[in-house]
Structure formats: structure tokens, C-alpha cells
Design a binder for these strands. Structure first.
Lengths: 233, 233
DNA sequence: TCAATAGTGTCTCTAAGACACTATTAA
DNA sequence: TTAATAGTGTCTTAGAGACACTATTGA
């Protein structure tokens, strides 16, 4: 939680520098077979009217750590408790607009579309066709999307994009939407079996045409191995 | 670099909260076929005398971003310019000792032992047998070690633990030391070839007994795919 | 020639990929 | 029976793993 602080009143720097620190959240979901990010219109200056990520300052009194701040922002502004939330990166440096040094501890959340009530507060935008956002928020979204696409190649993260009950076919469609490429049915089912991260609900789909499909839900080990790790290459 | 700041003077929170923010660096190297971390003894309170990571505060005037602060800390305190430096994680929350909220933006650096001049300032400690460090630095080191071991499974990161010229056998020993397990020679050489990240220097080793080995150096693409990505599972 | 290390050839076995096939439902 | 989707069997191929072999040097 801390560092070597030269005591609070240090030799070289005097006091700790006073830097604006806030938390931003990249809220990702799947809508219409496209990966979308939740954005809102800034109500205030600077950059009032511009699209931006939901975010806010840290409440040192009530937030035990920055992740709590991120959860609070999502709860207060969008009324959701994300099933998956992870720290993404900390962006630092001189603000392009005000010229002041600032810090943004950024997180990303992965949620099913069903938990998002369509309010005027939040707009969903295709992550591959974003307008210019406030501050460096385009860069933050891009990094979150890279990480999620990367994790989709080897992990169970996309499970968190689905509602409580889903079929294997819907799960495959979700992966295909995130990865942007079609997947082979046999391999995909083999892969899903190896996870051991699904449990059958006992129910099946009812549909016109086609055999009924087993409905599954995420089991507990869907979270295994998803924490602060990512891979490339 | 910023966030939605409610303008600097906001409604709910008043001003931005004033939180101690600093940068800590996990300096990793290989010594005696063991992965080691560079630590120093804190000269000042709080926790004077305790082992800690090198770190310091951000100089908003001179550092363009937090990574610059990390580089400055390494340059000023240990006189090195690390060939590989990456943001690790941002640790936040209430300090165990002072009870104050603080932020540590942590980085990890990977360097060859040859660039570390043995000064009284820095001690190398086996990452698998650490004493109790100041603040939450044990946790920070553990996360850095996890990430490096993880990356050693699929990336060229351990190349940065070696001096400028090295043989394939030395490279294999490096990987074995980081991963903590023996590797097959044939597979390892196949893997290294596929990277296309080494270039022959033209020189060979001179040694008593055994054929001479080709000396290599890192080529430019050794850095490919190493940025802010990591993987697990 | 011997000891020691560098570097390669090759066999086996597992898992990825591709694709055809069977199974089960509503209409 | 037909259309549509769920789910499985299986052949092929690429690559991981294991290990034996050859090559090159100093003494």
C-alpha cells in the first residue's frame, strides 16, 4: 500500500507532491454480437459534453483501496455490481488540456448486457468504431480491449459477458464476437469441457426447429487464473 | 492521463483528495543461478533499518510520466539504466504503519548482474527466501516474480537477464533458473530459433574442453510482444 | 585418443484442426 | 418427412517431448 516515503516531509522534494488522482472504469459488454464499451457524456467542465469513461475520485474515508472506488463509481453512476473487475493500468503524466500532472488508475469490468438498464446516463459504443473521447480515454479503452481479446484466446473471461444461463452455442458466439473470427465447433466444445467451469442447470432451451440445447451457468472455478495476469505472443 | 475530475473543485468531494503517491521498483537479476531482487536498507523513518524496494516520489516538474520517475530512481540510487522496465501494478489503500491512505505505482526491471556494481546501497536477495520487508513490499516482489516466471514460459523476457554476449547454453541455464525446472536441449534450441530474436556476434567461446559455442546478442525483436501483457493458465 | 561440451536427427505421442456424421426437436 | 440446430466420431497434421547421435575443440 505504500512506499518509502522519505518520511512525509522529505529532503529532495519537500512534501509529497499533490497530484490529482482518480479512477476510471472501462465497462465492457456484448451487444448485437459486438463488443461495446459504456460511455457517458461529461456533464461538467473540463470537456463538458464530451464522451468519457465513468470515473471519479478516491474517497479516502470510505474506500479501502482503489478497486473499491471503481466499484463505487459503477454502483453510484450505473447501478451495477460487475461480476468481473480487474485493474488495467495506471496512466500518468501531464494532462493534455489543463497541463497539470494527473494519475488515472484504470480498471476494466466485464458484464452481461442484461444487467445494464438503458438509462440516459450510459451509451454503448462499438469498441472498433469509437469517436474521440475525453482526455486519453481512447488509449485506455484500446488497452482494455486488447487485454480482453488476448484473454479470450486462452481463458474463461468471456463467460462474464453472458447472462446467468446460456448454451454452449451462445458461448461460442460470444467468443467469436470478442475474437472477431469464427471458431470450429468441435474444438470449441473440447476446450470448454477441459475448463470444467460450467455446470448444467438441468434445463434446456425451447425453440422452434432444432434439438433443445442444455443450459449452463458459470461454476466457481470460472474465476481461476484470471487475476492480474494476461498474455501476449 | 486524467479522468473526469468534476473540474478540480467538485460537488461531492470538494477538492481532489491529497494522497501520498510514490513509485517503487522491483529490480530483478540473476546471480548464482538464482533469481534475486535488489533491496536497500531504509535510512529514514518510518521503518528505518528495514529492507525495502528502491522507490521515491514523483517529481512533477521533471518526470513526464511515472515510468520516468522509476527510471530516475534507478539512475540516482543505483546508477543503472535498465534494458527492460515495465509497470507491474498499482497498490493502494491504508498504510499498515501510519494509517494513511497511499498509492504505490510499482514497476519491475530486469537487468544482467554485470551492470550492478557491488555498492553498499544495494543487496541482492533470493526471491524465494525473502525476509520481512517494509510496508507491503513482500507482496509487490511476489507479484513481480510471478509475472516474470509466467513470461519466461512463453516470451523472450529472460534475455534481459544476460550480459551483452552469451551462448545458447547460458540462455537455457537462465530460463531454467527462472522457471526452476530443467529444460530439454533440443526443444529449447528449436524454441530459440523460432523467436528470431538473437544475432550471432561472429565470435565463439574459448574454453578448455568441449567445442566452442557461438556467442549471440539480443536483436531488436527481442522486445516484441513484451509490453504490458502477461498470461496465466 | 579421451573428456567435455556444442549442436543435430529422428522417433513417438499428444493435441489442434477440419469435417463428416448422428441425434433430437417443432412444424 | 423436412428443416434446423445439438452434439459426437474420427482422420489428418503439426508440434511437443524424449533421447540418441554426430561434431568440434583442448589436453
Amino acid at each position: 500500500m505504500n512506499t518509502q516515503g522519505e518520511k512525509g516531509r522529505s529532503a529532495s522534494e519537500g512534501e509529497y507532491p499533490l497530484i490529482k488522482t482518480s479512477v476510471d472504469v472501462v465497462l465492457l459488454t456484448l451487444s448485437g454480437h459486438k463488443l461495446k464499451v459504456g460511455l457517458h457524456v461529461r456533464p461538467r467542465n473540463p470537456l463538458a459534453g464530451r464522451l468519457a469513461l465513468p470515473g471519479g475520485v478516491i474517497h479516502a474515508q470510505s474506500d479501502r483501496k482503489a478497486e473499491d472506488s471503481a466499484r463505487r463509481v459503477l454502483r453510484d453512476k450505473i447501478s451495477i455490481a460487475p461480476p468481473y473487475l480487474e485493474q488495467l493500468y495506471t496512466f500518468t503524466g501531464t494532462d493534455r488540456d489543463t497541463g497539470n500532472w494527473s494519475i488515472s488508475i484504470s480498471y476494466y469490468a466485464v458484464v452481461p448486457e442484461t444487467v445494464l438498464e438503458p438509462s440516459g446516463n450510459l451509451q454503448l459504443h462499438d469498441v472498433d468504431a469509437l469517436p474521440e473521447l475525453a482526455f486519453d480515454h481512447n488509449e485506455i479503452v484500446d488497452m482494455a480491449v486488447s487485454r480482453v481479446r488476448n484473454k479470450a484466446q486462452y481463458s474463461t473471461l468471456p463467460l462474464f459477458l453472458l447472462p446467468e444461463r446460456f448454451t454452449v452455442h451462445e458461448l461460442q458466439q460470444t467468443y467469436e464476437a470478442v475474437l472477431g473470427e469464427p471458431l470450429d465447433k468441435t474444438q470449441f466444445r473440447r476446450r470448454v469441457q477441459q475448463w470444467n467451469a460450467l455446470e448444467a442447470t438441468g434445463e434446456t432451451t425451447v425453440r422452434s426447429g432444432g434439438a433443445p440445447a442444455t443450459l449452463y451457468r458459470r461454476s466457481a472455478n470460472a474465476l481461476a487464473g484470471l487475476t492480474y495476469f494476461d498474455r501476449s505472443l
